[in-house]
């Protein structure tokens, strides 16, 4: 077999990082999907770009955690602006998302031209944040990703039932006395963190695919939130590893689009062939919702 690189420590490092990124994206994407905020993730990841560049311009550092703090802050600002614009004007969410997405990204690109004039710019490699370059992950980056991922998983475990009722029925949650606003802020912050983690491997342009596709795939296989979250995390991790593997194998490819394609492939397969909900079954038996896959 020609898969010697599977034994290569660098590759295993990068694959671990990508798997974690995919898993975190899938888990938080589940909540985004169920709360109909799939596209907020897209706006937030685009909005992260000016934060990355500004963090570099202000500190001159190219440390991943530092750049990602900048990314998180500006992604958060983007989400906040979407809420502000939709609440305080006649602009609907779709236009507000498009606005924030394109303007923040434009500002980021304009700032990038400033950053590229710095002598250290080439080393900083800010361009990798556009389409992702998992291969550039360093051991300390992966360590940092693992810590943040652990924190995210822990918080979701601790606030599991609160997030569940928030996603299903926010009015009921508020009536029960749950601090809905605080929970919403916490969940959005976790999503921002997931996006920030994803930027290195998937890039600002395609990070939303790692949120949406694994969750949409997982939804087709189960009717329980518990299983859906686990499955989405698994699909996300699979897409991460597979994408990194393929882009290494083929070469000359940014990892982001390959990971996004793997996630999309999993989603497409699930939409077509998942037991019960798979579209392939409905095409075969148009009238028969009951006639279904093995577990139906």
């Amino acid at each position: 077999m020609g898969f010697v690189f599977l034994m290569d420590p660098t590759f295993r490092l990068v694959a671990t990082g990508s798997a974690l990124i995919g898993a975190v994206g899938g888990v938080l994407g589940t909540f985004a999907l169920l709360r109909r905020q799939s596209l907020l993730g897209d706006a937030m990841s685009h909005a992260a770009l000016p934060g990355i560049v500004l963090a570099f311009l202000l500190t001159g550092s190219r440390d991943l955690p530092l750049l990602l703090v900048g990314a998180s802050l500006s992604a958060w600002l983007g989400a906040l602006l979407v809420v502000l614009i939709t609440h305080r004007s006649r602009i609907r969410p779709d236009a507000a998302l498009g606005l924030v997405l394109s303007v923040f990204f434009g500002i980021g690109m304009a700032l990038l031209t400033v950053a590229q004039r710095r002598p250290t710019a080439a080393q900083a490699g800010l361009e990798r944040f556009l389409f992702g370059q998992a291969a550039l992950m360093l051991p300390q980056d992966v360590e940092w990703i693992a810590r943040t991922a652990a924190l995210i998983f822990l918080l979701i475990f601790l606030f599991w039932k609160e997030f569940k009722v928030l996603a299903f029925d926010p009015a009921f949650a508020a009536a029960m006395g749950l601090p809905v606003m605080a929970l919403d802020i916490l969940l959005t912050t976790l999503t921002v963190l997931a996006i920030a983690l994803g930027l290195q491997a998937v890039g600002v342009v395609l990070t939303s695919a790692v949120l949406v596709a694994p969750a949409a795939a997982a939804r087709q296989w189960t009717n329980r939130l518990e299983r859906m979250v686990v499955l989405a995390g698994g699909f996300g991790a699979l897409a991460g590893v597979l994408g990194t593997l393929l882009s290494t194998w083929i070469g000359r490819l940014p990892t982001g689009p390959v990971i996004a394609l793997c996630a999309s492939g999993i989603a497409l397969f699930s939409l077509l062939f998942a037991p019960r909900r798979g579209l392939a079954w409905t095409v075969k038996s148009p009238g028969g919702k009951r006639r279904a896959g093995p577990s139906g």
């Binding site: 799939s38 949120l211 996004a260 497409l268 939409l271 909900r277 579209l279």
Partner: peptide, 19 residues
């Protein structure tokens, strides 16, 4: 198809084609 909501449908289709 009712398998995904509109926002997710958008979020599935265009990143795939763009990629």
């Amino acid at each position: 198809t009712g398998r995904v909501k509109e926002d997710a449908a958008l979020g599935l289709v265009f990143p795939a084609l763009f990629s």
